[in-house]
């Protein structure tokens, strides 16, 4: 049986992720997405993983949500708010969503992880020290590649911003 915290966080997460896709104004959608990420962080806390929950809040709610909100402000146009979804497309999407939900859900319910004996929360939670150890020993090459990827993403974003200036300079030179 699930407890009240689980039900509350599940309703918050799923409700706000639906709102993120269906809200009329894009900016409210961005805020709803941030709340949904916060709900996921709540699930991480329920699963005794405070370090990942902290990381989730820092990266998603702190960085990604702010980035998205700034982008929404930059690309704000009137057409954005009047654009309606195609009715047939929407019905197809809902049918696909229900099929995915029912199909994958049925597979999981029929599988061995539905057994209450599978895994237990009574065991010791994983310590942050263990995460740090495996990140800096066995997974240290992955950590370095991750750092390079992030640097590459930043350099790529800067290059995208720079190109516009170069094109303008070329145009004025011609």
């Amino acid at each position: 049986m699930v407890d009240a915290y689980f039900v509350g966080i599940a309703i918050l997460t799923i409700g706000s992720s639906v709102l993120a896709l269906e809200s009329k104004e894009l900016i409210y959608g961005a805020i709803a997405l941030a709340i949904s990420m916060l709900g996921i962080a709540g699930f991480f806390l329920l699963l005794d993983s405070p370090f990942v929950a902290m990381f989730q809040i820092t990266v998603y709610v702190g960085a990604v949500a702010v980035l998205v909100i700034f982008t929404v402000m930059l690309v704000r146009t009137q057409d954005l708010f009047s654009a309606k979804d195609d009715k047939g497309r929407k019905a197809g999407g809902i049918i696909l969503m229900l099929l995915t939900m029912g199909g994958i859900g049925a597979i999981f319910l029929a599988s061995g992880i539905n057994n209450p004996m599978f895994g237990n929360l009574d065991s010791e939670p994983i310590k942050i020290v263990e995460i740090g150890k495996s990140m800096l020993t066995y997974y240290s090459p992955a950590l370095i590649v991750l750092g390079l990827t992030l640097a590459g993403a930043v350099i790529g974003a800067l290059a995208l911003a720079r190109r516009e200036v170069l094109i303008k300079e070329n145009e004025s030179a011609n």
Partner: peptide, 8 residues
């Protein structure tokens, strides 16, 4: 819950 989020 993850299945529902994935479907959404």
């Amino acid at each position: 819950v993850t299945v529902v989020l994935f479907s959404i």
